[in-house]
Amino acid sequence: MTGCLMLAAVNFHTLLFYLFAILACGFAVGVVVADNVVRMALYLVLSLGATAGLFFLAGAEFIGAMQLMIYVGGTLVLLVFGVMLTAQAPFVTIKTSPGDRVLAGIVAASLLALLLQAAFSVEAWRRPGLGEVAQPAATPIGVALVGIRVDEPPAGAPPGVRSGYLLPFEIVSVHLLVVLVGAAYLARAKRRRTQRAIEVAASVQSLVEPVVEVPRQARGSASALATGGTR
C-alpha cells in the first residue's frame, strides 16, 4: 500500500531532511545553552533521535535503528541514570562563568567557520544526490562483520582489496567485555571495601575494643536507590 514511502517519495526527502536537521542542530545547541543538567539530557536525547532520523533518510536503516537502540535507548538511559543519581539541588545547575562563555563562543565560531568551509570546499559533495535507492544494508553489514564482502564496490571506487571487518569486530567484542568488567569493578569497589572494613573493624573491636572509626557509607549510592523502599 504505502510500500517504501521514504525512498520512493523523493519529494519528501528534502523536507524531512530539513526537519530532522533543524531538530538535531537545534537541540544540540540547546544542550550547550541549557544550564539545567536534566534539560540537557532531554535535549541530547531529542538531538540524537533526530540524527537517527537523518540516518534513515540517508538509507542507513540498520545504523539508524542501532543508533536508537544502543545510543538513545542504552547509553543515554545510562547517562540519565547518572544524572538522576547525582541530581541534588546544588549540582542540577552549575553556572559557567561569562568569560568562559565568550571564549567558547569565539572558538566555536571559528571552528564552525572552518568546518563549513571544508564541507563546501569539494565540488563533488555539493552536487545533489542521484537518488539511487539504497540496497537493504543489514545483511551486507552482517556478512562484512564476519569478514566476507558481498556488496558491490561503489561506482568510481578505486580497485583494490576490500577488507572484511572480522578483526575489528573481535577487538570490539573483547573491548566491550573489558569495559563490562571494568565498569562493574569501578561501581562495586567502594562497597566491597566498606564491607571488609566493617568486618575488620568488628573483629578488632571484639579483641581490644578501641574506638574504631567505621568508614563512612557510600553516600547516595546506586545500591541504596536500586533497592530503595524494599528493605
Binding site: 510500500g3 517504501c4 536503516e61 540498520f62 539508524g64 536508537l68 537502540m69 535507548g73
Partner: peptide, 11 residues
C-alpha cells in the same frame, strides 16, 4: 516496511 523492522520496533 523496513529492512530492519524487528530491530526498529524493539529499539
Amino acid at each position: 516496511r523496513l529492512n530492519v523492522g524487528v530491530f526498529f520496533v524493539v529499539a
